[in-house]
Nucleic acid binder design. Structure first.
Lengths: 235, 235
DNA sequence: AGGAATTTGTGCGTATGTATC
DNA sequence: AGATACATACGCACAAATTCC
């Protein structure tokens, strides 16, 4: 029963609590699908009130780590294969589907160029360039700008799912994004081995938010329309 | 306790409250940037507790309609357009937004050609060709195939919102749709007055469902990427 | 500049409703 | 039908941020 800090400047108790539980999930002490003790019991165990505990649990639910079922219980949801990790990846093979992977081309912390649209709070950002694959088909290249105000990343900590990396390393979760799909031409840094059938390609700009007012990430994706389509299921 | 319902099946009070405030915003009784009364005062006015009112306000904040500032007050944020009839129309002007309208080019009941993807139950369909506008800018042409199993339509009953027409005339709602966005070239029937800046254009295929297993509608939209983009807000 | 008043944020305890088992 | 567990709702006290005098 770790005691919550009380001195001035400390985070709210319910945030401390949710972070604590997140660490327990990360550490594997709470397994996928596992049911938590009743709220009153947990509240007593953590030395807090039910209301405060419930705010912490609500936070976890919003982060997609917990499923709350009235009359039943609270369940750890560690595997977000459908609703989580790749849920925001919107490219599919022409015939549908495909397992998305990413090959990192470069990772650098740079001053934001003037050509970037305004986003975030910092003048600097981590620039990540990747090539995207579906199954074994190269379908796109992308350039991601992660605002430095949320931290910076280096190549050795990146996994296929950037959003998961953001959560593990920088402790925030991307909860909202806006895509703008149009037509473009591949950038000059596109690997020559990725011969994009020449001419125009699909072009996606995305802003991503993490519950804050300012977007934390801006990305551009150029995809080969002969190999992939942007798919959106509505409602 | 003015209007909150209490009988079984009623929505939670805090939802009723937030919906009520949304309607006040929509109706224009609450203006953009306007500051709401203090929470305690509002709670008293609505005959509820501060905690319940706060849950309603939190709901509004989540919907992006309210900005809450500790020590200062709660401020209406009307900026974003409400989701309504055109919620499923995903094209916007490059600078954002635009009021969508449609100009009907032709309406015919036809046998489905072999080139159409399989959908619906009938061999026939109503084919509607339209030109789409945002504000006064022509941005796209589209061809809609409505499966004859749900009925047929004639030109004189069509309104700008097809989905609304489907409900009014054929008594079903489109509840689900899937878009596939790619690149194409304008079809030969494109009005010559809509000079689409030549070359490639954005291409959207959409299947629409009405709670049935089979799609009831298939449509293709060709849009001018120099004038419009496909926009998608996620989660 | 500074302090008081105002306003939202956090935290606690409790009672009751409602879904699940 | 009963027990269990989460959801809603109320009220209060105090902290923290903002505003105003």
């Amino acid at each position: 029963m770790p005691s919550a800090q009380k001195h001035a400047g400390a985070l709210p108790k319910y945030i401390q609590l949710s972070e604590l539980i997140i660490r327990e999930i990360d550490a594997g002490r709470l397994l996928d699908g596992e049911r938590l003790p009743p709220e009153r019991e947990m509240a007593r165990a953590y030395g807090t009130s039910v209301g405060t505990l419930r705010k912490a649990l609500a936070d976890l639910e919003e982060k997609g780590l917990l499923r709350r079922v009235q009359g039943s219980g609270n369940y750890i949801q560690k595997s977000q294969e459908t609703s989580g990790v790749y849920a925001m990846f919107r490219l599919e093979l022409l015939e549908g589907g495909g397992l998305p992977t990413a090959e990192i081309l470069s990772v650098e912390v740079l001053e934001k160029p003037d050509t970037l649209p305004a986003f975030g709070l910092s003048g600097f950002a981590t620039r990540i360039r990747r090539r995207r694959w579906l199954n074994d088909v190269a379908i796109a290249v992308e350039e991601i700008w992660l605002d430095a105000s949320v931290g910076t990343l280096s190549q050795n900590v990146l996994s296929d799912s950037l959003y998961q990396t953001y959560f593990k390393r920088l402790h925030f979760w991307v909860t909202r994004a806006e895509d703008r799909v149009s037509i473009g031409t591949f950038p000059e840094w596109t690997p020559t081995s990725f011969a994009p059938s020449g001419g125009d390609c699909g072009y996606i700009e995305r802003f991503s938010w993490a519950d804050a007012r300012e977007a934390v990430e801006f990305s551009r994706t150029w995809f080969d329309p002969k190999r992939a389509v942007y798919v959106q299921r509505l409602k």
